[in-house]
């Protein structure tokens, strides 16, 4: 009887020890692994607040990284912070987990230019042998990171020139704000194309800004709708929207007021022709190709430039006519060379 009780107690102690050991080996004391195991390489992508799901360029980034995670074999984590504090926490965790992490190489992808300020705020967040940082949608090379961006100037110039060629006299630009570099590029490019010397049209002075806030104006679905509901009463021929996710509000407005609106518009960031039959063409950024290329090289530890800015010439961006506006294709094409040249000059001047 006593023996049996003792045996049970011994079992009890042994089992508790066994369980404890099991827990301790559950990733708390990792061993850095090298080789072809998918767990060698870890990629954390931090999107901007509300940046996913608007059919903008971050959707392309997401699409590209989830496809690459399977084909290129790495551990992927996507973070969709709901606010600035939560974004900061996620990035901070990335650096904090460096020591406890089992990954041999780690990559932090900041999918929006709005994170430049975050990197500047935390100079202690530095690249190291195990950790690299990739910043998208920004050409600010003062931060310690790989930079990948796409210039909007050339494509916007091409769009402006085509609109001018169709002799559209009443044209306006709708911009998220007046300070973002990408917005400035798009506005300047479109205006330049529209106002080109041999063009059919005069000066374009109708530029409306959704937000006075630095990087704001990208996520105002409803506001954009209201904004446009005032505009449509004016007899515009064409609207060029550079408002990020706020464009969705515009497209919705156009769907719901199809018969009352006369003007055409363009899609931005991706081919958005299915969102409204008023979209004559779309400016398509190929961030998906950029990041796929970057990941390939990063995973293979191949050399690559710290900074790269894609252009119309490099085919990282293009202007694509919607299928029911096929007459725009040759017109857009007519201005491709000129647009490439103008973009080269613009970027050199900067």
């Amino acid at each position: 009887m006593m023996k049996k009780l003792l045996a049970n107690l011994v079992w009890l102690v042994l089992c508790i020890m066994e369980i404890s050991c099991g827990d301790a080996s559950s990733g708390d004391n990792p061993e850095i692994v090298n080789g072809n195991d998918f767990r060698d390489r870890y990629v954390l992508v931090v999107y901007s607040r509300g940046g996913l799901g608007d059919r903008g360029f971050q959707d392309k980034v997401y699409y590209s990284v989830v496809s690459s995670a399977d084909s290129l074999n790495f551990v992927l984590e996507n973070a969709l912070p709901s606010n600035a504090e939560s974004a900061e926490e996620v990035v901070e965790r990335f650096f904090k987990e460096t020591e406890s992490s089992a990954y041999a190489r780690r990559l932090l992808v900041l999918a929006s230019g709005e994170y430049v300020e975050l990197l500047k705020k935390h100079p202690e967040w530095k690249e190291s042998e195990r950790n690299q940082i990739l910043l998208l949608d920004s050409d600010d090379d003062s931060v310690d990171a790989f930079i990948r961006n796409i210039s909007l100037y050339g494509a916007s110039y091409m769009a402006g020139a085509a609109v001018s060629e169709f002799a559209m006299k009443k044209v306006a630009i709708l911009a998220a704000n007046s300070t973002s570099k990408s917005v400035i590029q798009a506005v300047t490019g479109f205006k330049s194309g529209y106002e080109r010397e041999d063009g059919e049209t005069d000066t374009l002075d109708q530029v409306f800004y959704l937000s006075e806030d630095g990087d704001g104006g990208y996520g105002f679905d409803i506001d954009a709708s209201y904004f446009l509901s005032l505009l449509y009463q004016k007899d515009y021929d064409f609207l060029f929207p550079v408002m990020g996710g706020s464009n969705l509000g515009l497209f919705r407005f156009l769907r719901e007021h199809e018969d009352e609106t006369q003007y055409l518009i363009c899609g931005m960031d991706s081919d958005q022709q299915t969102l409204s039959n008023k979209i004559a063409f779309s400016v398509v950024k190929r961030f998906d190709l950029l990041i796929e290329d970057f990941l390939n090289k990063w995973l293979n530890e191949a050399e690559q430039p710290r900074k790269y800015v894609g252009t119309l010439e490099s085919k990282d961006i293009d202007v694509v006519a919607s299928h029911w506006y096929s007459e725009w294709s040759p017109v857009l094409e007519k201005f491709r060379k000129e647009s490439i040249e103008m973009e080269r000059r613009y970027l050199e001047a900067k």
Partner: peptide, 22 residues
Amino acid sequence: GILFVLLLVACSNSEMYSGTSA
């Protein structure tokens, strides 16, 4: 007896754990 049985089940699982996490 009950404790024994329960823990035996738990341990019979954990006894099978081996190797590194990789």
